[in-house]
Design a protein around this nucleic acid. Structure first.
Lengths: 327, 327
DNA sequence: GGCCACTATGACAACGTTGTCCCCCAGCGG
DNA sequence: CCGCTGGGGGACAACGTTGTCATAGTGGCC
């Protein structure tokens, strides 16, 4: 800006005025300044501007588990969309389920003075955020709740969803329904397990430990588990999969197998309808989740300081075939 | 920092020394400072720091077409990964194929003084970046080249891939091979069309205008096109799909159809192997693309100022069934 | 001519840091 | 007692902006 001022033969303040479209600059002066800006390829430094104005940095931080997972990239897209409408940029990072990494990312974002934080928590300890929140940085947790702080949270109805899945399978005559879930220390995995259990009880088919296999799972552990479930004394005739990845692992393991158990997966995914049989899922909307969380964040930025809210988004069972096989 | 200094009864410079682990602070003083930091929840302002030091802002900007597309979210993931290893944060945004939006994002990132830019170009005009590049901001284009500036570029072998697809189909006896591509003003779409044409010529089956349908496509336009291709006087017996979305549209349109043409899709996608028939694709690696581009960017940041490079990543045909149907 | 109002512009401080340079004082040798 | 040394610490400027206030010039009115 200094250089521009020198070239145009004015003070830096006048350049500032031109750059900010402030009134009170003579058109001919403005023109000279603009020419100088163009010639030097000047672009105002937003960091300095925000520092001086003490105002918003125009950024929001997004900590998620893995952008590579279609579910989270859907969330990211929705967040971006709304941030854009509100003139904000998104800085994001993946925690890979590592609480340390999550914390590192969140605090790094705070150091950059983001206007707000959206976090898919990896761990259960979030007291590290208390100073930031007290200092006025709004934080919204999504997909999973914070461990030890009270804050805005947007979740999906994990319990309702798995209850519905089990009920649905039971209504087709299944009494040996298995559940393959993610690591039980992950909130959603645990909730879905609870829903599964409740569904079993409600359906009157009882909860049987041996039909449950919690993760972490990979392709081979899922294959092994399926083997066990199908060869036990009273084999499982139906399976509830705890998330999109597990569903895919199951599909891989079952590829080419003639006698397939019924299957309902948690999370919808592309092409589920084109597989044979098409996969019945508990669907919920990644972009709705991202949108709800971002809307909540912006409400806080707009001054809403009502008590923290917990929003639970509905899920719906989408019957496609794999879950409508009779026992 | 001021408050911390006052509370600890020292000067702000001493606080700065403690925060930056600089030597020359008495342990007992440091302890007082740390206690004050803790009590006030102080976190150093990175913008101010970078402004003062005139150093890197520790961020890189990523402009892509749509994070929601699994291909680009794979790219994003890879970029993030490498940026992390090099201590950088990623700021990203989606252009939605809108050149204006691409430019807006890129310039916004420049205003934030990102250390470097990774761009999946939406348009053909990139001279707007010349001042920034001359000012020392390295820019790497990925997936598509820049329109009118010479810069580092990482591409995949679009032509080679489609040539291979056509050759593969021809070797199974197909002589009426159709091509459904994206809008021809998109570089990759155009290149793939060229590859298709060259493949036809090489295979000695000739290039026939009526077998080509360029986009933009959506589910219904694809369905209509397929209808036309299959009912023409000499119907198409095989199809090459120009990208992952078009492949999916084709699969949707063909669902339940008994007489299916052979199909090879450009871009691999999850579950392609579990469909029936499994989908033969020209595969290339989103994360390899992201990694190559980011590596190139960091090489520039490390001072490499050799002439701009153009890297072309190989693709490979993955035969799975849909492309091995004989005519 | 003196005064006012108004426009165009500039000087300067400040945002929160850090780099540079300087000062104070204890400890030590002569 | 003096001077020197070195460790611990502070004052101040500067990074690139913008907000505040001041100032110079111009034209109009009495």
């Amino acid at each position: 800006m200094n250089d521009v001022a020198r070239l145009a033969g004015v003070s830096i303040k006048t350049v500032s005025r031109v750059v900010n479209d402030e009134p009170g600059v003579h058109p001919s002066t403005a023109e000279r300044v603009l020419a100088a800006i163009d010639q030097l390829g000047f672009r105002r430094n937003l960091s300095a501007r925000n520092l001086r104005r003490g105002s918003s940095t125009g950024t929001i931080g997004l900590v998620l588990e893995d952008v590579g997972n279609p579910f989270y990239s859907g969330v990211t897209r929705a967040v971006e969309e709304i941030a854009r409408l509100r003139g904000r940029q998104v800085i994001s990072g993946s925690s890979d389920e590592d609480p340390g990494r999550e914390r590192e990312l969140a605090l790094e974002f705070c150091s950059r003075r983001v206007d707000g934080l959206l976090i898919v928590p990896a761990g259960l300890q979030h007291s590290y955020l208390v100073p930031e929140m007290r200092a006025g940085t709004p934080v919204v947790f999504l997909d999973r709740p914070a461990g030890d702080v009270v804050a805005d949270t947007v979740l999906v109805d994990n319990i309702g969803g798995t209850v519905e899945a089990v009920t649905h399978l039971a209504s087709h005559g299944h009494r040996r329904i298995a559940f393959l879930g993610d690591a039980p220390d992950i909130f959603t995995a645990n909730e879905r397990l609870r829903g599964y259990r409740e569904g079993c009880v409600r359906a009157g088919i009882g909860y049987h430990e041996e039909l449950v296999a919690m993760g972490p799972h990979d392709e081979s552990s899922v294959a092994t588990t399926l083997q066990r479930l199908q060869t036990m004394r009273e084999p499982a005739t139906a399976i509830v999969a705890g998330n999109n990845r597990i569903t895919v692992y199951i599909l891989r393991a079952l590829a080419g197998v003639a006698e397939r158990p019924a299957l309902v997966g948690f999370d919808d995914f592309e092409l589920a309808d084109l597989l044979s049989p098409p996969v019945t899922v508990i669907a919920h909307d990644a972009s709705a989740l991202g949108k709800a969380a971002t809307d909540l964040l912006f409400a806080r930025l707009d001054g809403d300081n009502s008590p923290p809210r917990r929003v639970v988004l509905p899920v719906r069972l989408v019957p496609r075939g794999s879950g409508e096989v009779h026992a």
